[in-house]
Amino acid sequence: MSTNQEVSNSRDLSPSEQRRLLRIALGSCSGFVLCKLMNWPYGVFFTVYPMLLLGMLPVFNRLIACQFLFGCVVNIVELYLLQRFFLPFPLLMSMATFVVFAVHFYFMAKGKHYLMWACGLISLSTMLHFGSYPDTSIADMATSTMLASIIAVISAAVLYWLIPEHSAPAAAPPPPTASFEQIRHRTLLGATLATLSFVVFQVMDLRDSLSAQVATILVLFPLTFSGSLQSAINRAKGVTLGCALGIVVQIMMYDLINHFTLVVLAFFMTVLLAARLHLVERAGSGMGFGALTTIGILFGQYMQPHGDILYSSLYRLSSVVFALAILIVCAYAVHRLLNQFASTRDCAY
């Protein structure tokens, strides 16, 4: 027991965490390389999905793989139904989106297949936002999402085979013991804020603010106001670090940014740095995970053969901080409102 405590309090990585670090970096790199070489659209899915699959959980097995893939299929079906029946009617679209988000947060609050519903939230919110624009191909988006999910699962399986665990897998966290009132509170809180985020990004036509949109969804994963507040602080720090790393890469490479091999090496090294911080924190979605996903978004979505990420980094940083500040204010208001009623009161502040 004392040895485990020393490892958990140390800034050094255990042998198991070192292997996990390599899996995260290699998995993200494989998705990045494939999407760039094949010139596939929506590169953010190919870089971020491996980070979610290999970074959120310390283990990988058949159940996790099935949840991840099935969640993608559910997202595509949800997107098709929402686009097919509700897109021409903004009010009905917002109401239907709220219902879909509520289903996701309900099962997350109950702890039933948390990974499937949580990862689905990120994919669904992103696809809903991009899919609302007339020049966006829903078929291309759905294909990219499904392909990125399959590649992430295959790369995770291959990496766990190439870099296996030599110790027993980490014990799964105990399922949450929330009351019916807390489940209702967390479902309504998450669904309300996620829908509000979707509506605001639509009304203000914030098509280039992908990092901010993803951030407003990720910070809702703790399902409580206090948890979201701490997550927002960590996320803002992580985005700052991720953008700083992106700017450093841009400055160091200068006019070599068009050399794909160098870009891949730069991506691999920055992912290693952010993933190490994520593992050292041992705090789930902390500052390191925020930096990790920010790097994935910057390189996957905005790194072009004849472009750079300097402007994107600065814009992402300002938009994320502003969006998170607004979200937390709204979260506090919704949290206080729900606590006024006994049927939706959350005792965990």
Rank of each mutant, 00 (worst) to 15 (best):
1 M>Y: 09
12 D>E: 15
13 L>H: 00
15 P>R: 03
21 L>F: 02
22 L>K: 10
39 N>P: 06
42 Y>H: 09
43 G>N: 05
46 F>M: 08
48 V>M: 04
52 L>I: 13
55 G>F: 05
58 P>Q: 09
67 Q>S: 04
73 V>H: 05
74 V>G: 07
88 P>R: 01
90 P>C: 00
92 L>P: 04
94 S>E: 02
97 T>A: 15
97 T>Q: 10
97 T>E: 09
98 F>N: 00
103 V>L: 13
103 V>W: 09
103 V>E: 08
105 F>Q: 06
106 Y>W: 15
112 K>E: 10
114 Y>G: 03
118 A>S: 13
121 L>W: 03
135 D>I: 02
135 D>E: 13
141 M>L: 12
143 T>D: 07
145 T>W: 14
146 M>T: 11
149 S>D: 10
152 A>T: 08
153 V>Y: 07
154 I>T: 03
156 A>S: 03
161 W>N: 07
162 L>W: 04
171 A>Y: 15
173 P>N: 04
178 A>G: 10
184 R>E: 06
185 H>F: 06
195 T>I: 01
197 S>R: 02
198 F>M: 11
198 F>N: 10
198 F>I: 14
199 V>W: 08
200 V>F: 10
216 T>F: 06
226 S>N: 12
226 S>R: 09
227 G>V: 01
229 L>N: 11
229 L>S: 09
239 V>N: 03
243 C>R: 05
244 A>H: 08
246 G>K: 09
247 I>R: 05
249 V>G: 09
250 Q>R: 07
253 M>Y: 04
254 Y>Q: 11
255 D>P: 04
256 L>M: 14
258 N>S: 14
260 F>K: 01
262 L>F: 15
263 V>R: 11
263 V>K: 10
266 A>I: 09
266 A>V: 07
266 A>S: 12
271 V>A: 05
272 L>R: 03
276 R>L: 05
280 V>H: 05
284 G>T: 02
286 G>M: 00
293 T>P: 01
298 L>W: 03
306 H>R: 11
306 H>P: 08
306 H>E: 13
310 L>H: 05
315 Y>W: 15
316 R>P: 01
319 S>T: 11
326 I>P: 04
328 I>R: 06
330 C>G: 06
332 Y>S: 10
332 Y>I: 11
336 R>K: 12
343 S>Y: 14
344 T>M: 01
349 Y>K: 15
